[in-house]
Design a protein around this nucleic acid. Structure first.
Lengths: 102, 102
DNA sequence: TCCTTTCGCAACCTATTGGTTGCAATAGCC
DNA sequence: GGCTATTGCAACCAATAGGTTGCGAAAGGA
């Protein structure tokens, strides 16, 4: 089970998360298209997309002279996974505590 | 429903997450205790704990001359919540796509 | 073929952040 | 009361991150 750190870090930035949510709810788009919809430059967006791609949150496909990115939700399972283990440890601690009073 | 950004940002830092997991699985501790277990100074830890406190991931209680911190898992529900809405938007998009082929 | 998009790379700038050191204040034990 | 732990506050530092500008290259439509 791999570390959720890179994912959390990727999602921690507001513009990056906005980018991901945009792609997830509105569908695929290129960096230039996205730049037209947001108040930052294409290059900034491209960097964010590269990072999202590196953690698998986005899928990159070249179509002619443009590069279209689409959202991938699969890696988010890793985060859900981590949340679950946190919950389990918490429960385990409660359990141990209860036992200590018997 | 408030935005998960502050939470994600809080969890994005490795030492901060380590701190939280330590408190969650091993139980409450003071900043000084934690500093003895980790390779960074107490002040650095104190700052992280303050941030965790500000997003509700940690509970601060003064006991005599020391301040003991304990983990709070409740805010993580917000993250789970966000994951769910992302999944729903994704499903919605799939649904619309399928309908468009009928 | 030429011109326009679109993209990638690189340099650069600035604000933020994680971390440190130093010191004052306070709570408790002897 | 005096010594010792423990905390809080502030200044400071270095590295990183988010963003911009500037450029060269390649793909496609006119």
């Amino acid at each position: 089970m791999s570390d959720p750190q890179p994912l959390l870090a990727a999602l921690a930035d507001p513009t990056r998360r906005a980018l991901f949510e945009r792609l997830n709810s509105e569908g695929p788009a290129s960096a230039s298209q996205l730049a037209a919809e947001m108040p930052i430059t294409r290059q900034a967006i491209a960097k964010h997309l590269a990072l999202l791609d590196s953690v698998g949150l986005v899928d990159r496909s070249e179509q002619g002279r443009q590069v279209v990115y689409s959202a991938r939700v699969a890696p988010l399972g890793e985060v859900a996974n981590w949340l679950q283990t946190v919950g389990e440890k918490w429960d385990g601690r409660l359990e141990r505590l209860k036992r200590s009073f018997e």
